[in-house]
Structure formats: structure tokens, C-alpha cells
Write a protein that binds this DNA or RNA. Structure first.
Lengths: 242, 242
DNA sequence: CGCCGCATTGACTGCATTCAAAAAAAGTGG
DNA sequence: CCACTTTTTTTGAATGCAGTCAATGCGGCG
């Protein structure tokens, strides 16, 4: 059950085989709720289980000097810490933004499943590659785009990823991020984030009230962001070679 | 032969098994030289072979508006495009900086080897995870560090990665990057890169002449960069779980 | 020898940061 | 449910770091 959204996204993208789907569903998953700003794991930790996001948002971040740099956001159906299957120690912190529900799978059990089903291992490897592609785009965001492009891109990406798991309705979706979080993600000061959001609002591209983002003009927003969703590899067009 | 440096790095890090090492060496590799600024592959391409860097430097980049954002640098022993084993189309360009020598392996042959040897597939997956960790640190660089920290970190990372394949001698190593390249990598203007390098030089942390970087005070440079090499997962300390 | 790409420096500009303070919203406990 | 506290958002004003523009110097290569 907790891996349903993950399977859904994969089915759209690569046509996950029934056997692999079944194997996924057979995993024993312990559900847990974590509160707002609660730390799921810490830099230097040695992980014992692997996490899947059931609902809510997780953020990866590192402390750099006096800044708290957000490196990635994870939504329902994501596996934020696949890394721990191969690399012993975590090199970043993971926190919940808002209240989240997660599933935890024992690493050894998952390891066993992947050994038994190499095709499933490939699916997880593929996830890692997509996460890397998202990091690359994130680098472009913070390094090359101006404030409005940067933030618009962040919103477009979240919209596309939430859409892929059916969490966008009426061009709207919920996010519990504060403007300070956006600042920590984009490398822009919180004050300037506020001004930039006002700008996007005034141009009738989007609204953001009550933790709900509404895409008033998604095409316009994509244009500002220079957003091309190919890097998310969500569509059927981009199946793996096998 | 062309995978020797790759194997060397892995042996240090995870104690690559003799069988996997042998399997790697058995791969048929076509060597090629590519000239300075020559494009190895382009965004949107469908790759037919997988690349290993034998010598020289490759850079991944994307065009964002009027900027050319460098996303990653690859040195001897790296596989820059493992992604193509799982994701059909490239989402970035790869170029040679300076003259490079690369090896090309047919994707289907490599795919076959990985299917036959799941433990080797794990090794490549692990490589992907480390690349992702490097991207995360890159995000910190461009988003959270100031100009001198950013550039110092870039140099520290290159030093550590080149050291791992034995390409640092006398605290010195060769790089063919121009200051404009550093600018494209770090999101800083070329003029400011120049000033920042002068600053690092004046503080007797490093020198950079004739395409050779000399680490005059590596510890001091690490301090400026806030460099902690753990994320590179180079040491024996961080073996995978299996 | 002359060209061209790269590095270097100065002067000016401007965008984003910082500081500060008020308004609004959200959370908390009686 | 209301009063109180805390967090978040919003705005203004001043500052400063890094960007742009432009000119010169340097060095390698044909």
C-alpha cells in the first residue's frame, strides 16, 4: 500500500512489470508520522532503514556556514534515501516540512529483494539517475537563473512532480513551504523571495494563499522559468533501453 | 586497460572483487581522442555507447538563457554518462575541456555484463549515487558559499578526486580550465573569478600558472572552502552494506 | 612577427542583501 | 472559543558585493 504512488509513477513512466509491482507491494513497511521540522536523519548517521514518502514533504539540507541550504524536496511516492543502500553514511540531513507520513523498510529486506530481482534493482537505479538529473537542474536554478526564473522553476517542477502522482487538482496544489524555505532552497534572501513572489502574483502567473499554490498561467510561468520537463523523465517517451 | 583508473579508485573505496575487476577488463573499449571544446554529445541525443574518461577533462553543461552552466567535471577514471544505461535521452551536453582521451563501450555489451553480474551493477549504481552527492555539494557551492569559498571548494574537490587516481604530485595538478570555465561552473562572473583567484593567491593558499594548480596551503584552502571530503565516499571507511 | 584568446585591472552601476519594524497569520493553552 | 504567543509575511530604506563595460597586458601558436 505505501508504495502505491511510487508504483503509479513508474507505471506511467516505464510500465513497471506486474511481477516487480507485486514484489514491491510485498515489502513489509512500517508507517510513521513525523511532525513539522522534525529531523528524520542527520549527516553522519548510518541508516538502518530506507524511507518512502507516503504523504507530505521531506527536504534534504546541509549546513554551510550560517546558511541552511536545501538540496532537494521529496513528495509522495519518492524514496529520498536510496543512497543508504550503497553508501553507509549520510552526507546530509533530512527534515519534514509540515507533517508527513512515511514508510520505513528494513535495508536488509530491501537489499534482499533487489538481489533476488535485478530488474527491480534497475528501477531503483533509474530513480537515482532521475534524482541526479533533478540536482543538475537545481544547479542551473541557483547558479544561472535570476530570482523570478529560479522560483518559477521550483514551482513548475513541484507542479510536474505532484501531477505525476495525481496531487494537482484545478491547477492547484498544497505545499507547506515557508518563504524562508524557498530562500534556503534557491539561495535568495527571504526578503527577496517575498518580493519575487509578489512580482509573479502581479503578473497573474500564480497565486499562493493558505499553503495552496494555484497556477493561473502555467504556460506563462514555464516561460519565465524556462522549464522543460524532459529532465524529470516522467513520460512514456523515455523508457529505458531494456 | 582503459578502465584501470576506474578500477583503481574502486579498489581503494570498496575493494572491488577480482571477478568484477576481471569482468571490467574484459570489456571491449574503443579509444578516441577528442579535441579542446569538442562536443561529445548533445542534449536530446540518444546515446549508443557509454564513455569512460582515460585522460583529460569532460564537462557537463546546459544552456540557460545566455549562460552556459557547467554542471559537473569528469576526470580520468570517471564514467560521465552512466545515465544512458537507464534513461534514453540526454538532458545535457558533454564537452571536452582541453584534449581528452576517452574509451567507448557499446551500451548493449555493458548492459549484458551488468545483467550477468549484478554485483557489478551495484558498483555502477554506487557511482551514480556518488555523482549525485557531488551534485548536492555543487548546489551548496553555487547557492550558499561566497566567491572564495565556492572556488576554493571546486579546487579542493578536484584535488581530492585527482589524488584518488594518482594524478596529484607535489601538491600540484594540471587543469586546462579557463577562468571563464570556472565562472560557468560557479555562477560567478569571469571578472570576479579573476579577482577571487588573485585573492586566494595573495593569501598564499594556492598558485595557478601554466595550467597547473599548486596547493601551497591545502589545509588553509580547505578551511576557506569548508571542505569535508566525506561526500566523495572515497575512503575504505565507507564501504557499502553488502 | 602578428594574431587571437585569455588574464588582468579600473570605473561605474545595479540588483540583491541586510537591517528594522509593522502587519498578518498560525499555533497554543486555558 | 478567545486571548496570547510565536511565526511568517510584507514593506521601506540604506548598504555593499558582485556584475557589466571597457581597455590594456600577456603569452602561446601558427
Amino acid at each position: 500500500m505505501p508504495t502505491t504512488l511510487f508504483a503509479r509513477r513508474l507505471r506511467e513512466a516505464i510500465g513497471l512489470s506486474p511481477e516487480d509491482h507485486g514484489a514491491l507491494k510485498s515489502l513489509r513497511v512500517t508507517e510513521r508520522t513525523i511532525g513539522n521540522r522534525e529531523l528524520l536523519c542527520r549527516e553522519g548517521d548510518v541508516a538502518r532503514h530506507c524511507t518512502v514518502v507516503i504523504s507530505g514533504f521531506l527536504a534534504k539540507y546541509k549546513i554551510i556556514g550560517d546558511r541552511e541550504q536545501i538540496l532537494a524536496l521529496h513528495v509522495s511516492g519518492d524514496f529520498p534515501d536510496l543512497q543508504t543502500l550503497q553508501l553507509r553514511t549520510l552526507d546530509h540531513n533530512i527534515i519534514s516540512i509540515g507533517r508527513s507520513r512515511i514508510g520505513q523498510i528494513s535495508i536488509s529486506e530491501l537489499q534482499g529483494l533487489l538481489d533476488a530481482r535485478p530488474s527491480l534493482a534497475h528501477v531503483f537505479w533509474r530513480e537515482t539517475l532521475i534524482e541526479a538529473a533533478i540536482f543538475r537542474e537545481w544547479v542551473c536554478n541557483v547558479a544561472a537563473r535570476d530570482a523570478s526564473g529560479n522560483i518559477a522553476h521550483l514551482i513548475c517542477e513541484l507542479a510536474a512532480r505532484l501531477e505525476a502522482v495525481g496531487m494537482v487538482q484545478d491547477d492547484s496544489f498544497q505545499i507547506p513551504l515557508t518563504q524562508q524555505d524557498i530562500a534556503n532552497a534557491s539561495g535568495i534572501s527571504a526578503v527577496h523571495v517575498n518580493r519575487t513572489l509578489r512580482d509573479l502574483r502581479n503578473r497573474n502567473l500564480m497565486s499562493w494563499e493558505n499553503r495552496t499554490i494555484r497556477l493561473l498561467d502555467f504556460d506563462g510561468l514555464k516561460k519565465v522559468a524556462d522549464f522543460h520537463p524532459d529532465y524529470l523523465h516522467l513520460g512514456l517517451r523515455d523508457r529505458p533501453h531494456r
